[in-house]
Design a protein around this nucleic acid. Structure first.
Lengths: 133, 133
DNA sequence: CCCAATTTGTACGTATGTATA
DNA sequence: TTATACATACGTACAAATTGG
């Protein structure tokens, strides 16, 4: 029974404890990239918390870029994508921030995926990296 | 009255409409960087929605890195920080992702701030940028 | 230093909508 | 069509942090 790992008196918010537990399963590989998570209803019963608490935990993990959700289907562990390498030209500078809604739409980005900014162009951070030759 | 801008039949979720409205005020400068937002209670009345809807909108804006919240105090428009420039050495590669909880703690990062990764080191994306000389 | 008001955070509930299988 | 699952939106209550008197 996994619910033993959740403490209502630890001082740490329940949803963060749930997020920690699920994150650990993802990092350890117990939940493989691309695999489906249990339903929110199931998780709520497993950890003996309300569904809202599970939703908060999932939202937190989405923000970390660890899971992705879509309506009507169970959430999924985000698969690691390979990044295309782009060489920085002389004088170019790269930085990162979260995408605007328009950029999320344009690049088809889920939650928890930043963009890399070079000049006036943005690149999805899960598909690009920048290097110096 | 701003509530006119919120439509319950537009098909777009109310919290996204609220987020859009507040984001526009931030981008336009009507809400200056560093300034305090109205309380959630006030916003709920202003837009004539539940507090939960306002909270969802705020969480969305936090995820975008536009606002920051702390318990007991009103949310604040994130101030633009200046980024320290670091030169990439030959062969180095930089990419970005969301921080782990440990990295958030170590760097004192709020929501919606990615980290830049170079080798086995991470740099807060709101305080660093990488360039090629 | 303490107290009260304010504000956000957490957690529960219910109901309904919408996408997927 | 039906069942399942996540999304949205309302409500309530209390906890915890901050501010200011």
């Amino acid at each position: 029974m996994v619910a033993d790992m959740i403490s209502r008196s630890s001082g740490l918010a329940l949803y963060l404890q749930v997020a920690d537990a699920i994150r650990q399963k993802i990092i350890s590989g117990e939940m493989a990239p691309g695999s489906l998570l249990p339903s929110e209803k199931y998780l709520a019963e497993e950890y003996d918390v309300g569904r809202d608490t599970i939703r908060d935990a999932m939202a937190y993990l989405r923000g970390e870029g660890l899971v992705e959700s879509k309506r009507g289907y169970r959430s999924r562990v985000r698969a690691n994508t390979s990044r295309e390498r782009v060489w920085l030209h002389q004088g170019e500078v790269v930085w990162a921030r979260m995408p605007t809604p328009q950029e999320k739409k344009d690049h088809g980005l889920g939650d928890g995926v930043p963009v890399l900014v070079v000049g006036d162009r943005t690149y999805p951070a899960d598909r690009f990296e920048f290097g110096r030759e």
